[in-house]
Amino acid sequence: MKGQNIKYFTNGLIKENPVLRLVLGTCPTLAVTTAAINGIGMGVSATIVLVCSNIVISLLRNVIPDKVRIPAFITVIAGFVSVVQMLVKAFLPSIDVALGIYLPLIVVNCIILARAEMFASKNSVLPSILDGLGMGIGFTAVLTLMGAIREICGAGTLFGLTVTAEFIDPMIVFLLPPGGFFVFGVLVAASNAIAKKNGKEIVEHLGCENCPSRSMCKSVSADEEVTVDE
């Protein structure tokens, strides 16, 4: 039993890392990682929401009717997001400014909805907490790594301290939107290469198998395959 619990926790760290393996939560991953500290701020906020909403949804899993589960999940998540939003605003105003509207947008972060749908609504409280914690830490780690890469390349600093700015001219494009897409692409390529070496499947497409909206989206993707170019 104990070993199983550890598995729930470590699952989200590497094997099913939400960003690199499940490819969920791409919007905040690309948007806020202009500096390592923002990555940590976003990661920790999302982790808190994820763990709290997993607890509540797991507790309510026998109460919520199946038909209205998605709106119910969204309401629970939105409640916790508002709490986190107010806490960040009160105690870390600089992070609040840096994250801007992406902080309230944690509501629609698919990692949280996906874990509610795939895990918390089917498991008891302790596994749900561990799963949320593991996924949250995996998310934070990737965001921080990406923030660090973009900060070093784009500004020559790390966590605000000068690293390479004195001898290499910073390439500002890494801080701009194209840099986000590029660094993320390179990270996914690297994670794929490692996965391949270890005999794991590589990520070829966006994480549709893990997307919370998959059941609704099926018709869309089926349509994509059937339609012939006009």
Partner: peptide, 20 residues
Amino acid sequence: FLKGLPITLIAAAIVSLSFL
């Protein structure tokens, strides 16, 4: 090593660059 998602993201980077 770029097949699939990585090349899609890098292509998106170039499209985004043009919007700059």
